Amino acid sequence: MIIQTGDGRYYVSETTTAVRTNKVGNYIAVAEHMGLYGYKKYCSSANQYKTLQDAYRAYTKLVTEGDYQQYKDTLPQ
């Protein structure tokens, strides 16, 4: 996933999905429940990018050449 923080930084990070429930029913969330600063565990200087374009390039490379090639067909054409 791509995360943008309030200070304008972008990160490419791994996460898990979780099933959550609300008044309407169940839905899939892209991360487990986290507190106000819980996102920080997904962010490190190793995966930090200055622009969304740079972050998306890194994400695309991870999906097309890295550990997540089974999802390469989910990228927009």
Rank of each mutant, 00 (worst) to 15 (best):
M1V: 11
M1K: 04
I2L: 10
I3D: 01
I3F: 05
Q4L: 08
Q4H: 02
Q4C: 04
Q4P: 02
T5H: 02
T5N: 03
T5F: 02
T5M: 05
G6P: 02
G6I: 08
D7W: 05
D7K: 11
G8S: 10
G8Y: 04
R9E: 09
R9N: 06
Y10N: 03
Y10Q: 01
Y10R: 02
Y10A: 03
Y10P: 00
V12S: 03
V12C: 09
S13C: 14
E14Q: 06
E14C: 12
T15M: 06
T15A: 14
T15K: 03
T16V: 15
T16A: 12
T16W: 10
T17F: 12
T17Y: 05
T17C: 13
T17S: 08
A18W: 13
R20M: 15
R20N: 15
N22R: 14
K23Y: 08
V24R: 15
V24D: 10
G25P: 01
G25A: 13
G25L: 11
G25Y: 08
G25R: 08
N26A: 14
Y27F: 15
Y27W: 14
Y27A: 11
Y27P: 04
I28Y: 09
V30S: 04
V30K: 04
V30H: 07
V30G: 07
E32Y: 04
H33C: 07
H33I: 11
H33L: 08
H33M: 11
M34K: 02
M34A: 06
G35T: 04
L36E: 01
L36W: 00
Y37A: 05
Y37P: 00
G38T: 00
Y39P: 00
Y39F: 13
K40D: 01
K40C: 06
K40T: 06
K41W: 00
K41D: 03
Y42N: 07
Y42Q: 08
C43L: 05
S44V: 11
S44I: 09
S45M: 12
A46T: 13
A46H: 11
N47K: 08
Q48P: 00
Q48R: 11
Y49E: 03
Y49I: 04
K50N: 09
T51R: 13
T51F: 12
T51V: 06
L52W: 05
L52I: 11
L52P: 00
L52K: 12
Q53T: 14
Q53P: 00
Q53D: 14
Q53L: 15
Q53A: 15
Q53C: 05
D54A: 15
D54P: 00
D54G: 10
A55G: 03
A55D: 02
Y56A: 01
Y56G: 00
A58L: 07
Y59A: 03
T60Q: 07
T60A: 11
K61T: 12
L62G: 10
L62K: 13
L62V: 06
V63N: 02
V63T: 09
T64S: 11
T64G: 04
E65L: 03
E65K: 14
E65S: 12
G66D: 07
D67V: 04
D67G: 12
D67L: 13
Y68H: 12
Q70C: 14
Q70L: 13
Y71L: 15
Y71P: 09
Y71W: 15
K72V: 11
D73H: 12
D73F: 01
T74Q: 12
T74S: 12
T74H: 05
T74G: 06
T74K: 06
L75H: 07
P76D: 10
Q77E: 10
